[in-house]
Write a protein that binds this DNA or RNA. Structure first.
Lengths: 250, 250
DNA sequence: ATAGCATTGTGACATTCTTCACAACTCCTG
DNA sequence: CAGGAGTTGTGAAGAATGTCACAATGCTAT
């Protein structure tokens, strides 16, 4: 609620009744899941599912991927729990918000579960992102290789400093901020990254929202004010450090 | 619990009885606070205080600093709450875990409250940090200017790649990993940053712990296994993005 | 002084999140 | 094809966190 903007979307609080997946699926058949996830109950579902749960899903996906790398095809909630350091009950409960994906006595099919969670998180596509603020931090983010492998791709770089404009970073030119809103609209961008100085973060967020962005990854140490339909997550190493020193002994 | 290692320190669960600050303090006298915070109840207190609360404190400090910049000397929980986008009751409750810092009818003295929270978080000193893994990410972190202003300073850079060793980044030489443990011991380092590739993160964490580090800022996308007296916080932009796309409409 | 406004600190309550524990089911083995 | 071992999914209980609402108190103005 503090470091994340809970995005308490104001839509009618209709309880979802149709499970996303059913019991009679063939665990490794992606088409089946496809159909299940696209049906009409899906859109309403995220009202009911706690954000804590949603935040854990990427960790599950990541862990399942590491199992796939090791060619392990099946996993129990118990084993997954040990790997992630949570309780098995929590994993089962988390998954149960979305349907039934496991087999009693057997566990979960790694590939099927991983695909399913990715579909829930809408990671079954590539999301273009605009990056605002091309100082040192912006450069580092633009050069970061970890996004492509994860359904994300930076497609535009923006900076308000006209003298930075034109420079090419990781094959993309830096463009002026005044082009930001139109670019977002034209390219249907839904995700923005803020790496501007603190004082410019809010105005940047406003422009992102104006363009139609619905998710903002904020590296600036400020709490952003955005409409309820926009989600914000903070990346704040300093706060993280400052909260850890509390626990240091002596 | 997932992205943070709750650091459920196993010490006797003694309830703290002595408030850290009292009512008869002079709000702007730092010496008073000093004495209060150093007394014997302090060490036991963190058992009882929820980690969620501790994580919010850096935001309070940051916000109070921004008020100080504007020369505002007094603030109510209501006003602070608006700035941070939490409820006023939550701020009052959070602070009440540590004592009574406000004045009825008046609010809080900005400087006093800020100093006090910093003291609680042990930010009234500079923490040396070792940075492990000097790839692109490591370089970016080493060059980051935001730490000094926040009680932190990177004092050692380490990489396992011998060909990187010797290079000077932001006035510090990169040193070989084999010197890590001894350096931590000799320099009494308590905080480590992991910016290694995923596969090396756990072994790096083990070395940090062996040297005596009690707080780890982990940029690698892995859940680290550490003893209970060590706190870990994850910096994971990919997971943050992956959990936000869930909420995107359409 | 005293009244009255503003604001804290906190019991009591409400809500959210986690864990327990077990019926239901699946699979394997003989 | 029955029995046992293993594991899920989930009601119900429990723990943790957040909010309400108000008595207590300090401050200001007259």
């Amino acid at each position: 609620m503090l470091d994340c903007n809970e995005s308490d979307i104001s839509m009618p609080a209709i309880a979802r009744t149709t499970p996303i997946a059913r019991d009679d699926r063939e665990p490794t058949n992606p088409y089946r899941v496809d159909m299940d996830l696209d049906d009409e109950a899906d859109e309403l579902s995220h009202l009911n599912i706690p954000d804590v749960v949603i935040r854990r899903l990427p960790i599950y996906v990541r862990t399942l991927h590491s199992l796939l790398e090791k060619e392990q095809t099946s996993v129990s909630s118990e084993e997954l729990a040990r790997m992630i350091d949570v309780t098995a009950a929590q994993i089962r409960r988390d998954l149960s918000y979305f349907g039934k994906f496991g087999k009693q006595g057997k566990g979960y099919d790694v590939g099927y579960l991983s695909d399913t969670i990715e579909r829930i998180l809408k990671l079954d596509r590539t999301w273009g992102m605009v990056l605002c603020g091309m100082g040192k931090l912006g450069h580092a983010i633009a050069n970061y290789r970890g996004f492509q492998r994860s359904s994300f791709e930076i497609t535009g770089l923006f900076d308000s400093d006209e003298s930075a404009v034109g420079e090419v970073v990781n094959e993309l030119p830096i463009r002026p901020m005044r082009e930001l809103v139109d670019t977002i609209r034209e390219e249907h961008i839904r995700v923005g990254i803020i790496a501007t100085p603190r004082v410019n973060a809010q105005e940047t967020a406003d422009m992102l929202v104006e363009g139609g962005v619905e998710a903002i990854l904020n590296y600036a140490p400020v709490i952003l004010r955005v409409p309820a339909h926009v989600t914000v997550r903070e990346i704040d190493p300093v706060s993280a450090l400052q909260s850890m020193t509390y626990y240091i002994s002596e």
